[in-house]
Lab assay of single mutants.
Amino acid sequence: MTGIVKWFNADKGFGFITPDDGSKDVFVHFSAIQNDGYKSLDEGQKVSFTIESGAKGPAAGNVTSL
């Protein structure tokens, strides 16, 4: 699925993605970002991701920028 990064705190390594389908915002951890180098996201960035079952509920996985 796709969405827009609502916010991401690079110091803490997590944030939230707002899915394009209008569903509830999804937690994203830096370890789910699939790019080389520094793993961070920018507010407003368009991303593709999967929904994984995290310890505290749904979380984004396999996050790639579009």
Results as ranks from 00 to 15, higher is better:
2 T>P: 04
2 T>H: 07
2 T>W: 06
3 G>H: 00
3 G>Y: 01
3 G>A: 02
3 G>F: 01
4 I>Y: 11
4 I>A: 06
4 I>P: 01
5 V>H: 00
5 V>F: 02
5 V>E: 01
6 K>Q: 05
6 K>N: 06
6 K>I: 06
7 W>F: 09
8 F>L: 02
8 F>M: 02
8 F>V: 04
8 F>I: 03
8 F>Q: 01
9 N>C: 13
9 N>G: 04
10 A>D: 08
10 A>S: 13
10 A>E: 08
11 D>R: 14
11 D>V: 15
11 D>K: 14
13 G>R: 05
13 G>W: 02
13 G>L: 03
14 F>V: 06
14 F>D: 01
15 G>W: 01
15 G>A: 02
16 F>S: 03
16 F>M: 08
17 I>N: 00
17 I>T: 00
17 I>Q: 00
18 T>A: 11
18 T>F: 06
19 P>Y: 06
20 D>A: 08
21 D>P: 03
21 D>E: 06
21 D>R: 05
21 D>M: 06
22 G>Q: 07
22 G>Y: 06
22 G>S: 06
23 S>R: 08
23 S>F: 06
24 K>H: 11
25 D>I: 05
27 F>G: 01
28 V>F: 15
28 V>G: 00
29 H>Q: 04
29 H>K: 03
30 F>Y: 14
30 F>P: 02
32 A>D: 07
33 I>C: 04
33 I>P: 02
33 I>D: 03
34 Q>F: 09
34 Q>R: 09
35 N>E: 12
35 N>S: 14
35 N>V: 13
35 N>C: 15
36 D>P: 14
36 D>F: 10
36 D>M: 12
37 G>M: 09
37 G>A: 09
38 Y>F: 14
38 Y>G: 10
39 K>A: 08
39 K>L: 08
39 K>I: 07
39 K>C: 11
39 K>N: 07
39 K>D: 05
39 K>G: 07
40 S>T: 14
40 S>A: 11
40 S>G: 11
40 S>Y: 13
42 D>F: 15
43 E>Y: 13
44 G>S: 04
44 G>E: 03
44 G>N: 06
44 G>P: 01
45 Q>T: 10
45 Q>P: 01
45 Q>D: 12
46 K>E: 07
46 K>M: 09
47 V>K: 00
47 V>L: 03
48 S>C: 12
48 S>W: 14
49 F>Y: 11
49 F>K: 00
49 F>M: 04
49 F>D: 00
50 T>R: 08
50 T>I: 12
51 I>A: 04
51 I>F: 08
52 E>C: 11
52 E>Y: 13
52 E>K: 11
52 E>M: 12
52 E>P: 03
52 E>F: 14
53 S>Y: 15
53 S>M: 15
54 G>I: 05
54 G>A: 10
54 G>Q: 12
55 A>S: 13
55 A>W: 12
56 K>I: 08
56 K>C: 13
56 K>F: 15
57 G>N: 07
57 G>Q: 06
58 P>G: 06
58 P>Q: 10
59 A>V: 14
59 A>L: 12
60 A>K: 02
60 A>M: 02
60 A>T: 03
60 A>P: 01
60 A>L: 02
61 G>D: 07
61 G>N: 13
61 G>M: 15
62 N>V: 08
62 N>K: 11
62 N>D: 06
63 V>C: 03
63 V>W: 00
64 T>K: 14
64 T>V: 15
65 S>P: 15
65 S>W: 12
65 S>K: 15
66 L>C: 09
66 L>Y: 07
